[in-house]
Design a protein around this nucleic acid. Structure first.
Lengths: 339, 339
DNA sequence: GTGAAAGCGCTAACAC
DNA sequence: GTGTTAGCGCTTTCAC
């Protein structure tokens, strides 16, 4: 049988109200009774029921997190940072990974409302369109204190990385190195902003954007690295000339490099390759990857700050904010001067 | 104002009990009233309060997970698998990462009891000794339906990988390739079983275990890859001869390979390297890593099965079980015949 | 300072 | 079939 506040009250010879008072250290209790109660608590090893408390206080001290998956380092790190910071403020984190299923996404949010979480952090790479489904999801999200990471959903607070700028910088770095024919391998579920950055840089320098040099793919189930591998192969086989390739993320870049090596093409001597995200392995890979860093720790931390503020003053001004983090080019071995 | 069961009852012109009945589809309700209630629920967009329900039902449909960290692919994958499977059974997952802090570990478990989670999955690489602290932790864990992953704590159900056997196989593979002087780089927080496997294989073949060829390290804060890098450097500088090295995990192996490459030593032509875990990058790395695979998906899935059983029949036979998964050697490019 | 009592939103007897 | 009522374990007025 679980120990309740009643047992403690009996043990200490006081009323449950008094026990509650020492538990919440709000109203002052006579030092002597307080001590008696504390002893009783200790003796019975009483743990106040969080569930009952939640019901009255109308707060669960729980927040929900939605991410596409955890096997992606990017999201795993985010989850870790968020959990860590939330914990410092007394909150627990329910983590949900969608595996890119829109249905699950919806079901998770629904479960968050039912569970009365105090807030939610929404990270998702499913492209937010204006479909019936997305609209419905956005509405559910809006009824909860929510901050969105990465997709910036109109009407919601969000923290995002400047993918457009990061991608532009990456491609301009390539152009600065003398490259003119630059390919782009985007991959499924990669931010459209990155492709846009590629186009932006090319246009800025009046370089033609050749659709033959662009690979996108839409198969969610394929691993990024193998997508990169096969895209590179098909690029090579197309016969189109190019001296550099900008990839939608690091895993794609690694796959692409593998394909080049298999064909005895040197990186960066023959072809330069750039990735995105700066995952752990980027610095360790051989050749180490030139890439663009998303400041995940900062983004996660900022998201928590925003969320906590939303939770604490629900009536605060509700003009949605967006925090945009700069993405930084990290030059390493995989990019070099054009032949 | 939140919509409650009362509002629905009023709207539908029935009592709250009837609403509850259609909600729980237990006792049968007249088709007609049921319809009226459902319409009211829909119209008011009523979401039954999970918190209130939990209090009565004495179950929160929540389980807690403790892992050292999420930035480690190994644990991230585990968390993902567990969350996924739990969700299918209607449970949510609270994820906590300890960053190897014993204090946090304890605090998390305490919060789990307070939050009345229905069960906990405990994964931790902190070596379980018999210290005062560990004993206390084990006791708290035992008061909850718990299954432990990796450390097998006496008195708890657990699912583990056979690190001893996996490591033995790896080193015997090296020995089979003609290697005689084999080094071991263990790293902080790496399962002791792996070192034991190394020693086991050496002994099986009557090969001397040279302490000079063993690197362990105890600095929790250092990244595995850089630990591998520096350990390899120090091994090289020690002047001791060796033709192969078995590493405590893949990241350490990658660090070690980087060090060898920096010294213009070829892998595997000059020195063979083996890792452990078979993380994603292992197959992608150049050279691809010979390693030992821990079947994380299976382990996570088994843990959930065990936990669910524990939760569903708390009075079941309580002889703790342990499921041991074989670890499989995966031969790739980084190991080859001894010179 | 402290206790009695009224709920929080729901489920589960127990009547009718 | 459906309504009434008594809680679940706590916090919080409101008296004293």
């Amino acid at each position: 049988m679980k120990i309740t506040i009643k047992d403690v009250a009996t043990e200490a010879g006081v009323s449950i109200a008094t026990v509650s008072r020492v538990l919440n250290k709000k109203n002052r209790v006579k030092q002597e009774t307080k001590l008696r109660v504390q002893q009783a608590i200790h003796k019975l090893n009483f743990q106040p029921d969080h569930t009952a408390r939640s019901m009255i206080m109308k707060e669960t001290r729980t927040v929900g997190l939605i991410v596409p998956n955890l096997s992606n380092e990017y999201w795993a790190l985010l989850a870790e940072v968020i959990q860590d910071k939330l914990w410092e403020h007394g909150y627990s984190l329910i983590v949900c990974s969608t595996n890119k299923s829109a249905d699950k996404e919806m079901a998770f949010v629904k479960s968050f409302t039912v569970r009365r979480v105090d807030g939610v952090v929404f990270g998702s790479s499913t492209l937010f369109g204006s479909s019936r489904h997305d609209e419905q999801l956005a509405n559910m999200l809006k009824s909860l204190p929510t901050v969105s990471i990465d997709p910036s959903i109109s009407g919601l607070n969000s923290v995002v990385g400047d993918n457009l700028q990061g991608a532009t910088d990456a491609v301009e770095h390539l152009i600065g190195l003398g490259h003119r024919r630059i390919a782009y391998i985007g991959g499924p579920t990669v931010s459209k902003q990155r492709e846009l950055g590629y186009r932006n840089a090319m246009m800025n320098h009046e370089l033609p954007v050749l659709e033959e040099l662009i690979k996108r793919g839409d198969d969610n189930t394929i691993a990024f690295s193998s997508f990169g591998y096969h895209s590179m192969l098909s690029l090579l086989e197309s016969g189109e000339k190019f001296t550099a390739v900008f990839c939608g993320n690091d895993l794609i870049a690694i796959g692409a490099i593998r394909a080049l090596e298999d064909r005895r093409i040197q990186v960066p001597a023959d072809i330069s390759v750039i990735g995105y995200d700066d995952i752990n392995i980027a610095a360790l890979y051989k050749p180490s990857l030139t890439t663009v860093r998303q400041p995940m720790r900062e983004m996660g931390s900022a998201a928590v700050d925003m969320l906590l503020e939303l939770i604490q003053c629900p009536d605060g001004n509700n003009v949605p904010k967006k925090i945009v983090y700069q993405n930084q080019l990290v030059q390493r071995e995989s990019s070099g001067p054009a032949r």
